[in-house]
């Protein structure tokens, strides 16, 4: 029981402000790596980065989806219930936020809520823990928030991420937004970002 009550931010108001600014800067400058605030404790698969974003953005108004590993761990669901009060939903299509501990546990992107043409803001924001934000295969990113073009070198993306992301980009203004986390930092890929191979 103790592990459920413990944790959270050491300074909830100021830490969530700092974490939010990291997430905001990440989405406003896609492809850049922004440092997150570490929470006091983590829960095995629910790493510090996922906890940090969870505490910053979710509450009783935000249905959240968890991958199987996270959802089957009572320590995780009880931690979420105590610290955020967010309802956990089984269908990815109903989630405002989705938290995945690994790319393999993530359903196809189009399984999530893509928003509607009238209300594209109602789509799911997916928070995915990857192996690393740097050191992988180089991809080129373009779009709003990126001066000319930028590079990303993620490790641990879903298998056919490239094709899935292009399909997501095609839906604009509908589509999911992606927050990738690893090593205490976050990278944002909003639906506007175009990803291509090359240099």
């Amino acid at each position: 029981m103790d592990t459920i009550l413990e944790g959270g931010f050491s300074s909830p108001v100021l830490n969530s402000q700092t974490a939010f600014r990291a997430v905001m800067d990440a989405l406003a400058n896609p492809g850049t790596v922004q440092k997150l605030v570490a929470p006091l404790s983590t829960h095995r698969r629910l790493g510090p980065e996922l906890v940090s974003i969870l505490l910053t953005l979710s509450d009783h108004d935000t249905p959240i989806w968890l991958d199987d590993t996270l959802r089957s761990d009572p320590a995780v669901t009880e931690f979420i219930a105590f610290h955020t009060g967010a309802p956990v939903v089984a269908e990815p299509g109903r989630a405002m936020f989705a938290f995945a501990s690994a790319a393999a546990a993530l359903p196809r992107l189009d399984q999530f809520n893509l928003g509607t043409q009238e209300y594209p803001d109602r789509s799911t924001t997916i928070v995915l823990a990857v192996e690393a934000l740097t050191g992988g295969e180089q991809l080129v990113v373009r779009g709003p928030g990126i001066k000319d073009h930028g590079h990303i070198n993620l490790v641990g993306l879903p298998e056919d991420f490239f094709a899935q992301w292009s399909a997501n980009r095609e839906l604009f203004p509908r589509g999911i937004d992606l927050l990738l986390v690893a090593d205490g930092a976050v990278m944002g890929l909003p639906r506007t970002t175009r990803i291509s191979e090359g240099h």
Binding site: M24, Y119, D121, S123
Partner: peptide
């Protein structure tokens, strides 16, 4: 509270800001 607004309100506004950034020019309610 710090910066006047309560934390739940800030989270709600922060979520709106993130979606607004993801859909440039679209008005998020």
């Amino acid at each position: 509270n710090f910066a006047y607004l309560d934390e739940q309100t800030k989270r709600m506004i922060r979520r709106a800001i993130l979606k607004a950034i993801a859909i440039p020019g679209y008005q998020v309610p």
